[in-house]
């Protein structure tokens, strides 16, 4: 194990996979000469050259499409969205081309592409640059959606995403790039897609989250433990497809669920989790599934309003109290 930042862990994953497979290349705005807007691609241009670390004009739609086209012919592109706020310009390509090509052609295409970059609210960027996009992508059959919460998971999952033969949306977090953690330096360290990770074991209530939300959940769990409540924290890691087995095992034990996400509530990840849990595990619930989400407004700039909009460990504790019938 080695201690490294999230940014370094992702960089290591890109480096290793590009070295491993010449069909892998990185394309996006400022990924080469500038060394990456968030420095995730630092040093890669020097190592792999301009043919494999490709700077693009500011044209998300077309370079997303170029990536998809090249994947249809067998390359394994990694398309960096400087932030996922700009992926909206490329949604037509991602939804109509990447996700659907296999089906529309009756199985003639494999589209092994990764769209990656920072996602989710950041700090004081107002409405257009600070939002969670995961629920949009999760709605699309044909896509896989991954959102790691630790440097170690980030590395193992990004390598898996690059090797996967389906299009993967890989969601990082600007505010976590500096987070440090122990990262495996095993020769071929890859985590499976489609599996949850139990980040903390507990018996009284299940907290389900992903990405930055995991840290709100873990913070709440620590505080609750002082109070004698043992929360189990499940990190989805892959948001689509969902690993319902791990979730079911936990819910059967705790009978209570709180979901935590930074995105908007309507049609969010928590909404899907609540549906599946009430459907599959109805008889194991002792309280309604409860969500902690961002507030249902575009992100305001002012710091105090931003803080109000975003979920916090305190919100998680309040939700836990509700599902545990604690006053």
């Amino acid at each position: 194990m080695a201690t490294m930042s999230f940014r370094e862990a992702l960089n290591a994953a890109l480096d290793e996979e590009m070295a491993r497979d010449p069909k892998v290349f990185l394309m996006g705005e400022e990924v080469g000469q500038y060394q990456g807007a968030y420095k995730v691609s630092q040093g890669l241009l020097e190592k792999f050259g301009a043919d494999r670390v490709v700077d693009t004009p500011i044209t998300e739609l077309s370079f997303a499409g170029v990536g998809i086209g090249s994947a249809m012919l067998g390359l394994r592109p990694i398309i960096e969205m400087m932030t996922f706020n700009f992926s909206i310009l490329a949604l037509d390509q991602i939804i109509n081309n990447a996700a659907k090509m296999r089906l529309m052609s009756g199985g003639q295409y494999t589209v092994p592409i990764v769209f990656r970059g920072p996602n989710g609210p950041a700090h004081m960027l107002s409405a257009q640059h600070s939002q969670a996009t995961e629920s949009w992508f999760c709605n699309i059959p044909g896509l896989k959606v991954v959102a790691p919460s630790t440097p170690n998971d980030g590395k193992g999952l990004l390598k898996a995403a690059i090797r996967d033969d389906d299009p993967v949306i890989f969601l990082e977090s600007e505010l976590m790039y500096n987070m440090k953690g122990e990262v495996s330096d095993a020769a071929d360290y890859v985590l499976p897609l489609g599996k949850c990770d139990v980040k903390r074991a507990g018996k009284d209530v299940t907290l389900i989250s992903f990405s930055k939300g995991i840290h709100h959940a873990l913070g709440a769990a620590e505080a609750l433990a002082q109070d004698g409540v043992e929360a189990e924290v499940i990190d989805l890691m892959t948001l689509r497809p969902l690993d319902m087995e791990t979730i079911a095992r936990s819910v059967k034990k705790t009978n209570r669920v709180v979901t935590v996400e930074e995105g908007w509530p309507y049609g969010g990840i928590g909404a899907e989790l609540a549906y599946r849990i009430q459907h599959d595990l109805f008889d194991y619930l002792d309280a309604p599934v409860t969500r902690v989400t961002g507030l249902d407004v575009p992100m305001p700039y002012a710091e105090n309003l931003e803080e109000l909009v975003l979920p916090s460990p305190r919100d998680v504790i309040l939700a836990v109290n509700t599902v545990m019938y604690r006053s």
Binding site: S62, V66, G69, S70, L75, D92, Q93, M101, S105
Partner: peptide, 25 residues
């Protein structure tokens, strides 16, 4: 023969990607 695409103009980036793959390899 790579389709057959229904969104006006949206396959032009794909063709460009084919060109990119041809150049890349």
């Amino acid at each position: 023969f790579h389709g057959g695409h229904g969104i006006v103009g949206a396959h032009i980036p794909l063709a460009t990607g084919f060109g990119w793959a041809s150049r890349y390899e």
